[in-house]
Design a protein around this nucleic acid. Structure first.
Length: 274
DNA sequence: TCCCAGGCTCTCT
DNA sequence: AGAGAGCATGGG
């Protein structure tokens, strides 16, 4: 991959294993919108981004070299060798899933945003998750030039369940507030979690109300970049019972979160029945 | 009207 | 330890 910085934009040429649309809209992040012209726009890491892709050329508009290096290169996981990872998958179903939707990358999202987003995801569907998060940002996030930042844990920690009524998150409101309070008080420490072994990191997240096994796995995968995390929702549960009744192959442990994302998207799509 | 959704908490065995 | 009810909301 070749990266070009012109006066305004950052352009990636010869990109391999990156499908921007698929990665931004496969159920791991909830704040991206597809524009009528096919571009994607959204806010992540406190910054607005407009991004387009044509074949193996990706353009990040109004992105400086500094922002690319510090933010978006990390967010899109561009330093990881997906060719190497995907080619290590020899399992028949997994190969099918990867071939059906090549280019999905595991986004490295903000840790707090991932915690909050996946608390909201509990017993919920993706369109409604997006709506709740959008209202959360519009009501309590900092206004940017384009859109709103994700509100900080500090801001949310001072709110009540009644304050959150406008976002219509239902029974999850009390969990959002509990998470914000535990994070802003330091009872749950993101910096500490980053350096803990997997099971201990998960145990820290489980201290938050509304965070159970599945949400914790999602947070570790999408917020902390822990690719050994393996979230099991209803779709992955179907995959496991249908295709891996003896359990998911252990040989893929280190990257099983990536495998899981391909399988999740494949099982939800019509391609699965073909 | 019913069922389902990237589940969790609480309670009862 | 494991099973089951209840939970807010809205789309199909």
């Amino acid at each position: 991959m070749h990266v070009v910085f012109n006066e305004k934009d950052t352009i990636l040429q010869g990109v391999a294993h990156l499908d921007v649309a698929l990665s931004l809209d496969c159920g791991q992040a909830f704040r991206w919108k597809r524009c009528e012209d096919g571009a994607f726009q959204g806010v992540a890491m406190g910054k607005f981004l407009r991004i387009t892709q044509k074949d193996d050329t990706v353009t990040l508009y109004n992105v400086s070299k500094e922002d690319y290096e510090a933010v978006w290169k990390v967010y899109f996981d561009l330093d990881r060798d997906y060719e190497k990872i995907l080619s290590s998958y020899t399992d028949e179903s997994l190969v099918k899933a990867c071939r059906a939707f090549p280019g999905i990358r595991i986004l490295k999202q903000d840790e707090w945003e991932a915690i909050c987003s996946f608390i909201i995801s509990a017993n919920n569907n993706i369109p409604r998750i997006k709506g709740i998060i959008e209202r959360l940002c519009e009501c309590f996030g900092e206004k940017l030039e384009n859109g709103y930042a994700f509100p900080s844990a500090e801001v949310i920690s001072k709110l009540t369940v009644e304050d959150l009524a406008p976002i219509r998150s239902g029974f999850r409101a009390k969990y959002i507030i509990d998470a914000a309070q535990k994070l802003s008080s330091g009872e749950v420490d993101i910096e500490k979690i980053k350096h803990l072994p997997f099971s201990e990191a998960k145990a820290e997240l489980l201290k938050i109300k509304g965070v159970g096994e599945k949400v914790a796995q999602c947070v570790l995968l999408y917020g902390f970049g822990r690719h050994e995390a393996f979230p099991v929702d209803v779709w992955v549960k179907r995959i496991l019972s249908e295709l891996y009744p003896e359990g998911f192959p252990e040989e893929y442990y280190e990257t099983q979160g990536i495998a899981q994302q391909y399988l999740f998207h494949w099982r939800r799509s019509s391609a699965f029945c073909e």
